[in-house]
Nucleic acid binder design. Structure first.
Lengths: 250, 250
DNA sequence: TAGTGGTCTAGACCACGTG
DNA sequence: ACGTGGTCTAGACCACTAC
């Protein structure tokens, strides 16, 4: 039309997004509620389809809404797992391998799948930390209540774990840390590096993450009392499913 | 034209994005390099402007590229600050208030601005943890090398800090923790909760964050030896500028 | 079958930064 | 002045979901 677009204000799609966001944050639209769809926004605001779409894309990329094809756009819901850094790794927990994850999920049911144990040539930081490029890697995926929440890849020096149950699918009672202890390499100290970034497409697919969901990346290194690094564990967590907690003294 | 679109494969804009991503991750396009722009992609792939744009939007939302109006789209660069959880808060650091941040930035120059100290009615979790809704709040923004990297809001019970330098802009040598110590409320234990999410528009603006950059949210509570919560500090970190490190024993 | 979101085209005008 | 990304329109066809 000939209506002057009146710029210098915030663009239309942003103002539509702002109004919808306000309704979500104020609670007027609650968890799982349906947002007005593309057609509804076209009618309500008299804009083209692409503009309505752009407004919804803002909320989707902010992680506030999730689109479902053929159905609609819905307010996102959160149910974080509390992952307690230091406490979960205290020695007492090793008695039973499941204890660590039971601690995290507070009893909610979880599963492990896509477990693959392979021997590999390590590169870059892993080789540097472990002091060798000959490593065994244990990769797996954790799901809670049927939803995948974490990918993990634990690296171990081949010289230490070769020929032990750590290279088998089933590591036995107490898990890897119990086996390392029996080998005289019990972890005594840990360092965790925490980052956040957007997932790559393959990561988003494995974790079934909707758009607008960051990844929490944790690189954990386990050291023996002698200061030898015996494990490099890279974990990728769906940030919508996790809260990390760290306790320490002054 | 009449060329059949051949669906059931991944859409055009995704395949364009995949090719560009590959060049970025492989290093063929390095930090700060210019990507082919909208016009270039239109010519190269014979697609409409909106499709080329959509391909670039994928990379931008993944945090791999940054658009600059009037100039082009560029490969994103990273220069993280290492923020060391426990060590930076050890008592020895309090002797000089600047020490904590010097530790984080490893000597890189930083500034604090937008400092506001206000008395407020606390709500929700803050009031619950501090055991009162009468609080003083110290809000400020940290920048490193001229780029804003963190917003922080520290909450203190008014009954403890009222009338002390903690309610002034300048808290004196050693900072807030030194003053709390003099008041008989020296922090002895800390807990930090770490989350990641996409920033809201006002948060993204204050931190000058480009699209596709998650926020790291840290809620830190300081407890005295007697177990009294004396500080609730909510920090919002630009995830492109930070790596968190936590050390602990088994 | 009707409605939803997903992809794509072919135009247009604008604000902005670099030359 | 020119090319860049930013916004917007008005169509179209598709795949999927719900009824």
């Amino acid at each position: 039309m000939t209506e002057s677009p009146v710029h210098h204000e915030s663009p239309i799609y942003r103002r539509i997004a702002d109004r919808l966001r306000e309704q979500i944050l104020s609670g007027a639209l609650g968890d799982g509620d349906r947002l007005p769809g593309e057609n509804a926004l076209m009618n309500e605001y008299g804009v083209a389809r692409a503009t309505a779409r752009q407004a919804l894309a803002v909320l989707i990329n902010e992680g506030l809404a999730v689109p479902r094809r053929g159905s609609g756009v819905y307010v996102r819901l959160f149910r974080p797992i509390r992952r307690h850094g230091p406490r979960r790794l205290s020695r007492e927990q090793w008695g039973d391998g499941r204890a660590i994850w039971d601690h995290d999920t507070m009893g909610r049911p979880y599963t492990v799948d896509e477990l693959r144990v392979t021997r590999e040539k390590a590169g870059g930081r892993v080789a540097e930390v472990l002091g060798t490029d000959e490593v065994w890697v244990r990769r797996r995926r954790y799901s809670v209540e049927g939803r995948p929440v974490q990918l993990a890849a634990s690296h171990y020096p081949a010289a230490i774990v070769g020929g032990t149950p750590i290279t088998e699918a089933d590591t036995g009672p107490g898990g890897v840390y119990a086996r390392l202890g029996e080998l005289g390499h019990a972890p005594a100290r840990f360092t965790e590096e925490v980052r956040a970034r957007m997932p790559l497409p393959n990561e988003a697919k494995l974790l079934e993450m909707p758009a607008g969901t960051p990844l929490i990346v944790i690189d954990r290194i386990a050291y023996t009392a002698a200061g030898v690094a015996v494990e490099y564990n890279e974990m990728l967590l769906d940030s919508a499913s996790y809260v990390l907690q760290y306790d320490f003294d002054a």
